[in-house]
Simulated assay, not measured.
Amino acid sequence: MDRSSGEGQISGEDGSRYVFTQEDWSDSRHPAVGAKVDFDVDGKRARRIFRLLEGGDVPAPVGEPRSKIVAAVLALFLGTLGIHRFYLGRTGSGVVMLLLTCTIVGALVTGVWAFVDAIRYLLMSDTEFAQRYPRR
């Protein structure tokens, strides 16, 4: 990556070269020459670039994964306030739950909603949970 322009190039498996900027880089580790990466193509631009793990083809996670147990506990105890939704990065539905809780009928609705969310999180496989609620 060129420090002065802020742009870099990646060679794809198809032999084509794709440009990227730091904003396209989605991995916590910095770009390095020769590193194996996975990316989405947008024309001649590489987007959502992740370095691959050594010896594998799975993108390296960004930060610690979210815990489905923490999400379920938050849903059970603070669910009517939508706290579990904020924890999972679902800010929009968290705000909706918070606003609905201001009324008695809304509090009943969010109570059931949060309970269903907690059960869903606990029954969901770890892999599916990590895919649905990635750390960004």
Results as ranks from 00 to 15, higher is better:
T127I: 12
G111M: 07
R47T: 15
R29I: 00
L74Y: 09
A60R: 15
D14C: 13
D14A: 07
L108S: 11
A130F: 07
G92C: 05
W113Q: 08
L76C: 15
G43A: 03
T127M: 03
L100K: 01
F39C: 10
V73C: 10
D14L: 07
F115R: 05
V105M: 07
G12R: 03
M97G: 04
V112W: 01
D42N: 14
K36C: 05
R120E: 08
E128G: 00
V105G: 14
Y121W: 07
G89V: 14
D24S: 14
G79F: 03
L99M: 09
S11E: 13
T127K: 05
V19S: 15
V73E: 01
T127P: 02
K68F: 02
R29V: 14
P31T: 06
V58M: 08
S67E: 12
V95R: 09
T21N: 03
L76E: 14
T101A: 08
G79R: 05
L74I: 10
V62K: 14
L76H: 00
K36Q: 08
V58C: 00
P65I: 00
T101G: 08
S28A: 11
L100Y: 13
Y133T: 09
E23T: 07
A130Y: 08
A130E: 15
T21P: 08
L123C: 08
L108E: 02
S67C: 13
G106P: 01
R51G: 13
G6L: 03
G8S: 03
E7Y: 15
R29W: 10
R29C: 03
C102F: 13
L53R: 15
H84I: 02
L81M: 10
V19A: 12
D42K: 15
F39R: 10
C102S: 07
G43F: 03
V73S: 10
D57R: 05
L81N: 07
D24R: 07
F50M: 12
M124R: 10
F77R: 11
A35C: 09
F20M: 01
W113N: 09
S4H: 06
L53D: 10
T127V: 12
G43C: 01
Y87G: 13
S26N: 13
W25Y: 07
V41P: 11
A114P: 01
S5V: 11
L99R: 03
Q9F: 02
K44I: 02
M97Q: 12
W113L: 12
V70R: 07
L99H: 03
G56R: 15
F39Y: 07
D40C: 09
G55W: 01
S28W: 07
V116H: 09
D24Y: 06
L88A: 13
S11M: 14
L52D: 12
H30Y: 13
R90P: 00
R66E: 01
G82Q: 02
V73T: 11
G92A: 11
G92E: 06
S26Q: 08
G8H: 02
D57H: 11
A71Y: 15
V95P: 04
D42H: 11
V62F: 12
R48S: 10
S16Y: 14
G8N: 09
Q22R: 15
R120Q: 15
R51A: 13
I10Q: 00
S26W: 07
D40L: 08
F39E: 09
A118W: 12
M1V: 13
E128R: 11
G63L: 11
